[in-house]
Design a protein around this nucleic acid. Structure first.
Lengths: 303, 303
DNA sequence: ACCATGAACTTTATCCATAAAAAACAACTT
DNA sequence: AAGTTGTTTTTTATGGATAAAGTTCATGGT
């Protein structure tokens, strides 16, 4: 049976809005809520129905108003708000990055399905999607080959990344001065300096800043294949760093400084300087990834 | 139910071997056949069982020999030798390239499933796999967006292709003179000149030569992401040219000449010359693709 | 005429079942 | 001991069913 995670997540969000007083007086219409939440009206109605049922809202003659106060126990547990597909993704990444799965291992749909508690279909869909990341290969009628999260992988990944990033950076710098992207770059620059000041407490926020920065660079000259490739990067980094928190603050601090140098270079429109700053940043990103790979290639995988 | 296309294809192949006299006297063991055909022994046994049942082979005291002559009617029809997944692929490509499907159309799994006569599962798996080609986008809980086989697509595709190809070509040319790839290049060069001589009758053979050539260039410095990208190119070209036979001979003839110039450039190790030859070839490949795109963007889609 | 709600209909996400194909095991033969 | 064939077990490819979510149609109020 399909999970009702969309409903539960929407319910939790509306509950939070009620609690935070974002919805006072007469509640918005179903259509308005639908737009706000990005779900269908059908789902909105289900949420409203349940809210009314629990007296969290009151409906009188077609007008809805807030009801009793929302309590912690009203929320659905977080685990019930993500789809099976997402769970599979998370479990697989944990299996891959934390487990001692050796390169060359073959992957068995049925076994993973049992292990993750889902139907084989879901596993297979995930593996198909995931295979574009270059870590898996399908052998028809037989199964999947896990190629391993290895040094080779990181090197090949970064070779492409450098090519793409240099290309995009140069194109970015050649935009007309009137392009709105320059302003966006300025905003990002201040965000970086801000974060640098508060690095002690907010170093976790770097990751999203990093993403925004690299995506901005690509915005000047969009290419779907480059965007797709950047999805791979983000994905890998997202999960990889969940299992490798070592030195996170220092790493991020260094990266911020590199970004700032890179931004300055872009603003200078000086292509040699851009190339240097860009390469420097990517080289250190690569080093970071490579260093942590050793952990997986060696034995101490559960540190 | 799973299709028995593996068995049927294997059966046809063994039948052909019997007919062509490739299997005379005592037949090879099950294991040997298995290796030769690339299927499991289970399937080999099924084939042998059926061959015996039809008296195409005789089994006497554990020794198998050829039986009555193979007739045309012994073969399974071609359509029954390709898996459902492959059929879906073919039907989808036809639907996309031949149909008047406009960019921005949304794709409906259920509808395609009905149209193609398969379960929705198969459609979905195909779409997931296909989405890495940059022509589709999945919107969760909603469906798929067809982005269209447009001019933008071709431009973005070729931008990447040029980057990758230049990179690989240069790395190829910097290999030591002792690398065996130089010899392979020589072989390909003669194949090109051969084909050029017989262009009138054999121009269809260019496609596979093209493939071998570009894959050889990548062999000098393997990168899985580049290989994957080249899969996209091959796939697109493979299907695209099935529906666009216009001027095929002239196009291929021109391409052979470009390849020869490109090969000469590689052999010269002169990087400027390589860059020129490579760019020239890709530019004309791009033009060809773009010209035929007009057909789809315009109105005359069933020409 | 527009916007809100209600209800019916369609499509996606998910699980389950099963024949075909592969893999593993067992017994035999030289 | 290595290679054969026979048998059993496991896994993949494919179809089908169904609740949840999305979409469309219908009705009613301003």
């Amino acid at each position: 049976m399909r999970t009702d995670t969309v409903y539960k997540k929407a319910f939790n969000r509306v509950a939070s809005m009620l609690r935070d007083g974002q919805l006072t007086g007469e509640l918005p219409s179903e259509n308005e809520l639908r737009r706000k939440m990005g779900v269908s009206r059908t789902t909105v109605r289900k949420v409203l129905g349940e809210l009314a049922h629990r007296d969290l809202i009151a409906e009188r003659s077609g007008v809805r108003t807030a009801g009793r106060a929302v309590e912690d126990s009203d929320y659905y547990p977080d685990a019930e708000t993500t789809s099976r597909a997402k769970h599979v993704e998370q479990q697989f990444m944990e299996w891959m990055l934390r487990g001692d799965t050796r390169p060359g291992t073959s992957i068995n749909e049925l076994e993973l399905a049992r292990q993750f508690g889902v139907a084989t279909n879901g596993i297979r869909e995930f593996l198909i999607r995931f295979s574009r990341f270059g870590l898996l290969e399908k052998r028809p009628n037989t199964g999947w080959l896990f190629k391993g999260f290895t040094e080779d992988f990181a090197l090949e990944l970064f070779e492409i990344r450098v090519m793409f990033e240099l290309r995009s950076a140069h194109l970015f710098s050649r935009q007309p001065d009137t392009s709105p992207l320059w302003e966006k770059l300025g905003v990002l620059k201040s965000a970086h300096t801000e974060l640098l000041k508060q690095i002690e407490s907010r170093f976790h926020d770097f990751s999203s800043l990093d993403n925004r920065f690299h995506r901005l660079i690509n915005e000047a000259s969009p290419n779907r294949f480059i965007d797709d490739f950047y999805d791979i990067i983000s994905f890998i980094f997202h999960y990889h760093y969940q299992w490798n928190k070592h030195d996170e603050k220092q790493r991020n601090q260094a990266a911020i400084l590199e970004h700032l140098a890179y931004i300055d270079a872009l603003e200078s429109r000086d292509s040699e300087r851009i190339e240097r700053a860009c390469r420097a940043h990517l080289a250190s990103a690569r080093e970071t990834l490579m260093r942590s790979l050793i952990v997986f290639d060696g034995m101490d995988t559960n540190a």
